[in-house]
Design a protein around this nucleic acid. Structure first.
Lengths: 196, 196
DNA sequence: GCTCTATGTCAACGGGCAATGACATACGCG
DNA sequence: CGCGTATGTCATTGCCCGTTGACATAGAGC
């Protein structure tokens, strides 16, 4: 696609030589493909094609499919900015986001799909679990605080993940009164979980 | 394994000729492998070996890998017995189950992993979503009842799924006081969701 | 402008997998 | 007992994917 566009436009046919940009393009394509198809279902040729690059470059820059996956994983798990959340308002904000459609937030949706798939595969699960513990559960525990953090953090994480999955599976967004009720009650649940 | 056992025992070396049992064995092995490894990561040779059968039989009975996957999917989604749940006790029962370890219930765990994987793949997602709607969300709506069923059922489903995922990801089960608190608060959340 | 290196492309190979068709044999039926 | 079909096995084939090494060329440094 990129190449075709280049052919009909006035831009040069040959790819600009920019290693950094190329790696970024490969990584972006990889995250998308891994998210949609999982590790085994994603093919290097397809990823390379999406990035507008020859497949051999993946081996040069990432040392093979494994390396590319690891890089994509590392790039997908970044610590959520829990510290920015206000205890008084976060619940409603989050509930509103969950009531919306997944397509509105494709970047995060892809990242989440990617993690979900990787977490359910025994090959990649250890990597994911370790990263999730460190970069997701850790911050959540710190943010929630209070007694019995472990139990409460787990429930919070479960609800959080469940809402994301539900949003992912569902095609039709909620409307009108149902939407309003969904937000109210979801916010109530979330709020109750951060209180000791 | 089956063959080896047969060799050292007094039972015949050659497999008993029972098409129905063979198909059931293949299907069971397939569900397990698809759950663990996804569609692309599961190999017919391995499935056949687990079932104690030659791989060619899969093609004969299920018409190829696609057919086997479809059969396994169909077999994995069966309506949950919500009608058996008692409104007063289900919350605690479910919370206790969620506090336990996934290994204690491998059959359901595999089925859930299988569905989760299938639901996040664009190829199989439509099949899964339709079946989930009919055989999971439908019964939940009916069981919950009351006003704004749609919104409340979705939150309930989200929490349910989230708890399953959390249980799946976690290796270490909760112990002692944390476990007690987890059950109490999880039960409280679940209970609140079935009340109008 | 020459050269050298980093970047990008191409063609081929080797392994592994699903699928296929020929072959073997148990079991029902006469 | 003999035959035929359903069931199970084996060897082969063809395809697809990841990887590799040789080749091409832009662009920097001199």
């Amino acid at each position: 696609m990129t190449k075709v566009a280049a052919l009909v436009s006035d831009r040069p046919v040959v790819r600009k030589r920019d290693a950094e940009a190329t790696q970024a393009a490969i990584l972006a394509a990889a995250k998308s493909h891994f998210a949609r198809s999982g590790y085994e279902g994603a093919f290097l040729r397809d990823i390379a094609a999406d990035a507008g690059v020859d497949a051999a470059l993946i081996n040069r820059y990432f040392g093979g499919k494994d390396g590319l996956f690891a890089a994509a994983l590392k790039h997908s798990i970044r610590p959520h900015a829990f510290h920015d959340w206000q205890r008084e308002t976060f619940a409603v904000e989050m509930a509103k986001m969950m009531a919306g459609h997944a397509h509105q937030d494709m970047d995060r949706t892809h990242a989440f799909q990617f993690l979900l798939r990787a977490a359910t595969s025994p090959v990649t699960a250890p990597l994911v679990n370790a990263a999730v513990q460190e970069r997701f559960m850790g911050p959540i525990r710190a943010w929630i605080g209070g007694p019995n953090v472990e139990a409460r953090a787990r429930i919070f994480a479960a609800v959080f993940i469940g809402l994301l999955v539900e949003r992912l599976i569902r095609d039709e967004p909620l409307e009108g009164r149902e939407r309003k009720v969904f937000i109210e009650r979801t916010a109530a649940v979330l709020q109750s979980l951060v209180e000791a």
